[in-house]
């Protein structure tokens, strides 16, 4: 499909994917229903909208927030988001005093169950090296200014635990319920590279 919506020749990547899919199916290594289920998983079922619901519940329910920060795995499982790459979760809270940012310096470990697959920049060598050594510089490039008095806390998720940031609830959201709040929460704010913007 070309960018104007008119069907055109497939890109090289698309052709390669189609060729691989055909081969896997013909050799009986993969069932087509499994491919459909995998696409459904990452398109519709695992993604940042899950994490956003966790964040919104924590913003509106102090008991849940305390549970989430103490036992991220259990509290997230309570929402039903305990699928693959969410087996052992740690949730870290952003406050006016502490700003958390998550990186995987060795590869691209990411909490799929709550945030989906990682964005391309998260897997890139420049982000992986500079988020560790110069987090304030990286944050500034994302438009996120952190005060000199605020502690920047980097989490390198290179081992078996997966990390998610509980961003600060923006101002001007007092009247919003959890459903409306969840719509404000972005993937990037749960990685910790941005803050959640107030509603328009």
């Amino acid at each position: 499909m070309s960018s104007d919506g008119i069907p055109g020749p497939d890109s090289e990547v698309a052709l390669r994917v189609k060729a691989m899919e055909s081969l896997l199916l013909e050799k009986g290594l993969v069932e087509s229903s499994a491919i459909d289920a995998l696409i459904d998983m990452f398109e519709n079922r695992l993604g940042p909208w899950n994490g956003a619901q966790v964040v919104a519940r924590a913003w509106t329910d102090p008991e849940y927030k305390a549970w989430l920060l103490q036992d991220g795995t259990g509290a997230i499982a309570d929402m039903g988001f305990d699928a693959v790459q969410g087996e052992d979760m740690v949730v870290v809270e952003n406050t006016p005093q502490v700003h958390n940012i998550v990186v995987c310096t060795l590869c691209s470990c990411f909490p799929w169950a709550t945030l989906g697959l990682p964005p391309v920049w998260y897997k890139s060598a420049p982000f992986r090296s500079r988020a560790a050594s110069d987090p304030r510089g990286v944050l500034a490039e994302f438009g996120t200014e952190i005060g000199a008095d605020t502690e920047v806390r980097v989490w390198d998720s290179n081992a078996e635990l997966r990390y998610m940031v509980l961003p600060e609830r923006p101002t001007g959201t007092d009247g919003l319920d959890a459903e409306a709040l969840a719509k404000l929460v972005t993937r990037d704010s749960m990685i910790g590279v941005t803050k959640v913007a107030p509603p328009d």
Binding site: A132, P135, V152, V154, W155, D156, N158, A159, L161
Partner: peptide
């Protein structure tokens, strides 16, 4: 910055 830290999970 003296304020900042990095946390990593090590065996």
């Amino acid at each position: 910055p003296a304020t900042d830290c990095l946390n990593i999970d090590l065996w």
